[in-house]
Every structure is written in C-alpha cells, then in structure tokens.
C-alpha cells in the first residue's frame, strides 16, 4: 500500500536513533558508577595532604615557601578541565560560559590570562578564541593517571615560580549529584590559609628531612597535583552522569515521537481504506 511510505521510513529512522541513544545511556550509566568510585578513591589523599598542610601552617618553619605568599595580581594562570567527547548535554557549554565570564572579569581588571586545557572540547573551543593557550593534554580516557597531567601542572608551576603568573586557578565541573553538575572555579596558588587544628597548640616545628625547602616544595607540588587530578576525575564522573541524563531524555523524546507518528500513520491508513470502500460502494450503487 502506498499510504504513509514517508511516515514509515521516518519511524524506522527514529527507531534507529533511539537504539543508539539508549545504548549510549546504558554505557554512560555503567561508566558513571566506575568514575564515581574513582572519584571517591581520590578523596583520602586530598584529605590527608590538606591535613598535613594545615599542620604545617601551624608549625613555625624558618622558611616561607613562595606558594604561600600572596602577590599583586598582574597575570593569572587557569587550568581548564573539560571532557574529551560531546553528547553530554550542556556540561561543557556551561563550563565554557563560566570560564568566559571569568575571563571577562579579568579582562576588565586588566589582568592577563594564560590557559592550559585538559580535554579536547576545551581545547577546540578556546583555540578558536583570542586567548593565550600555553599547554594542553587530551584523550586521557576514563581512568586518567596522575602522571598524564604532570606536564601541564609543571608549566603552570614554573610560570608561577618565575613570576610570570601571580595566581593559579582550576576550572572544572563539580559533581553535585547525578542530575546536577556545577561549573566551579578554585584558587590553587597561592595556597589559601586554612583554619587551624586546635589539637596542635603551642610553639613547635617539624624535623625536616632533608630540609624545609625541599620538603615543602615536594609537598605543595603534590598538593596542587592532587587538586587538579581530583578535578579531573570529578569532571569525568560529571561527564558520564550528564551523558546518561541527556541520552535518557533523547530516548524518551524518540519514544514519544514514534508513538505520535504511528498514530498519524494508522489514521492515514484507515482513511485510505474507508475511502476505497466508499468508492466501491458508490460504484456498485451506480450500476
């Protein structure tokens, strides 16, 4: 029957799309579980290192590390963490919007910005803009390793130490829950003074081996690295969650559309049959 050929093709095509979106939804759901575990696994380290830095702030070292000293801000560094792949709703575009608004504020304050990006999406977006990109890494996969991002952190730390930049920020998505991801900006350098631990009153200091400078160097570098790494795994969890939600709504929309097209198709088919019958009946009556 010739009726509704286009409608039937349309239905078939939407069904195919739905199959893909549903598969992607399920893949994202299972990956989200894994990335969330990974995100939780990084928490003990950053908690511990934060604690040590807190202790250090209370000790009375003879040496003051440059990472702890606030300077006048003329130029800032930004590490921007995005996903490698799209199809995850507004995750990346929200992040970029936040970044652009921050860039605008710095621009108004006559502060220059250096950017390092993690993930292909951020790089693709900002390489077309007039920003100063000084490093990038991408395609780190779902299980990134800390040593993958050591390079760009080193670029930023070197820039900070040589006085090229006076502050360092990381911008990434915060995992609030499966439905909500929030773009956030966090200051890494200079390391913000944190609240004190009451158990450690009095005048005391560590024994430093080999010496205070080297130990602090090591500790603060690891602290920055762990912060960025945590941002990265958190962003990964966000990506999977956002993709799962986006693909679920796409599958649902496809389902609704198929239902409606099916209805239209059935009506058209029925109308055609009715018309045929009435033609036959009218023909017979005329004879």
């Amino acid at each position: 029957m010739a009726v509704g050929k286009e409608i039937r093709t349309k239905i078939a095509s939407i069904k195919n799309t739905q199959k893909i979106t549903r598969a992607m939804e399920m893949v994202a759901a299972s990956k989200m579980r894994k990335t969330k575990d990974r995100m939780q696994a990084t928490r003990p380290y950053s908690k511990k290192i934060g604690q040590i830095i807190k202790h250090l702030a209370q000790a009375n070292p003879e040496y003051k590390h440059p990472y702890l000293i606030t300077r006048e801000v003329k130029r800032v560094g930004v590490i921007l963490i995005s996903s490698d792949r799209g199809l995850c709703g507004g995750l990346n575009s929200n992040l970029f919007r936040k970044t652009l608004s921050e860039l605008g504020q710095w621009n108004n304050a006559n502060v220059e910005v250096d950017i390092c990006t993690i993930g292909t999406k951020a790089f693709g977006f900002f390489s077309n803009l007039k920003v100063n990109l000084i490093g990038q890494v991408s395609k780190l996969g779902d299980a990134p390793h800390l040593h993958d991002i050591v390079g760009i952190i080193k670029i930023m730390l070197d820039a900070y130490e040589s006085g090229k930049i006076d502050q360092l920020f990381v911008i990434s998505n915060e995992f609030v829950n499966t439905m909500t991801q929030k773009p956030t900006i966090e200051q890494l350098l200079p390391v913000a003074a944190c609240e004190l631990d009451e158990n450690l009153g009095g005048h005391w200091d560590y024994i430093y081996e080999p010496d205070a400078k080297e130990v602090l160097d090591h500790l603060l570098t690891r602290f920055i690295e762990s912060k960025v790494y945590q941002g990265l795994v958190e962003n990964n969890a966000c990506e999977q969650a956002a993709r799962m939600v986006a693909m679920k709504s796409a599958s649902d929309n496809a389902g609704n559309l198929i239902g409606e097209l099916q209805l239209i198709y059935n009506k058209a088919r029925q109308a055609a049959i009715t018309q045929e019958i009435s033609e036959i009946v009218a023909g017979a009556a005329a004879v």
Partner: peptide, 29 residues
C-alpha cells in the same frame, strides 16, 4: 601519614612531560 607517589617521579621526567604538553598544544593549533 604516608603520601605515596603513583609513579616514579624525577625532576627531568616532569620536565619532559611539561615540554610534551606544550608541543601538543602548538601542534594541534
């Protein structure tokens, strides 16, 4: 508290990684 590194780290290895990240950005640009 022991904060363990996950991989062998040395100044020169970090340096290479930093250079690599820079080169990658330039190439891709």
């Amino acid at each position: 508290t022991i904060l363990a590194d996950t991989a062998v780290r040395a100044k020169d290895i970090d340096e290479v990684a930093a250079l690599d990240a820079k080169v990658k950005a330039e190439e891709a640009l």
